[in-house]
Design a protein around this nucleic acid. Structure first.
Lengths: 172, 172
DNA sequence: CACAATTAAATTGTGCACAACTAAATGACG
DNA sequence: CGTCATTTAGTTGTGCACAATTTAATTGTG
């Protein structure tokens, strides 16, 4: 579980034999699983930390966007978070039911629904200020290391997005 | 979007003012969001690549485990993937309905359900061999870089797990 | 102005993650 | 042997992600 053998013999050439492909399959399991596991481990930690704010992790992300940008149409919130209305509509309804946000149709454009903070939602920010520090501490990483990891992940994300668009151009 | 200002002035001391905490909140958004986004971008890519195998991403992970280890009780599958029966039971039923795995109660221990591959499930491995290469290519990362990222993520995961256990010791 | 194309939310349906709980089998111990 | 704690799957309920579809408003064009 330390420093994988790394089947570099098969790194550059086409799939010829069978053994290198096996290694790739095992490696693939490790990579995709590592990311998946890290994401879920983060989720578990946030679940604990956010419990007394009464927020789930995706709800917290939405609140972060609103705290930073003020009121926004659902569309814009979705652009910030890479989420569509299929995910956001029910989530925002739950935040509204919790009294943290209000949602109202824009007068200028009746298609658009503008999401804003209630007083309670704005006040919650004060209690949220201590969240990042607890999370950062739990990672055991320093700021530099965190920023480095973030940069790699962001690069990975945009590369993956680009690759997905090549295979599947009919996507927004 | 390049090299964040990094509010290192507030890195070591307690939250005194307001501005540094604001920065932390913004930073937190970036970190957790980056991981979340990368995980979902990976998911989208796998969704496309796995489409003609008829597998979802979590189902693919289960198949990887079975291809590598042969038949296993549900419990063991869950240990490999960090998933409990609440997630695995319905997932395995879908794989069984698809004709890829069979599930049968162990004779030795009637509590345990052993999951094994059908001929069709074993045969699917052949078509899956080309998946890792497509994924690796899409990341735009070399093997070294992938392994490095994986190592960081694994370290992050175990640190996060340990931190969660400190806050919440009643967890397996 | 009329009408087609586009856009924004919402809805529907499928599948995953996870907490909480249930049911059944096993194992330990008096 | 009987009883109780533990273990293993499964079930239920909540919430998120995402594809596909629907509805309504807006924009563009003739």
């Amino acid at each position: 579980m330390t420093t994988t053998p790394a089947p570099e013999s098969a790194a550059g050439d086409a799939v010829s034999g069978s053994a290198p492909a096996d290694d790739f399959l095992r490696l693939d399991q490790q990579i995709c699983f590592s990311l998946n596991a890290a994401s879920r481990a983060f989720g578990s930690l946030y679940r604990v930390v956010l419990k007394d704010l009464g927020l789930t992790y995706p709800q917290y992300l939405v609140m972060l966007v609103l705290w930073e940008h003020g009121e926004l149409p659902v569309k814009k919130v979705g652009e910030h978070l890479r989420l569509d209305s299929g995910t956001l509509s029910p989530l925002l309804k739950r935040l509204e039911a919790a009294g943290l946000v209000r949602r109202e149709r824009s007068a200028r454009d009746e298609r658009s629904v503008v999401v804003g903070l209630t007083d309670e939602g704005a006040a919650l920010r004060g209690r949220a200020l201590r969240v990042p520090r607890r999370i950062a501490a739990a990672t055991g990483f320093g700021l530099t290391e965190i920023n480095d990891l973030r940069a790699r992940l962001d690069r990975l994300t945009s590369t993956l997005d680009a690759a997905a668009l090549e295979d599947f151009p009919d996507r927004g």
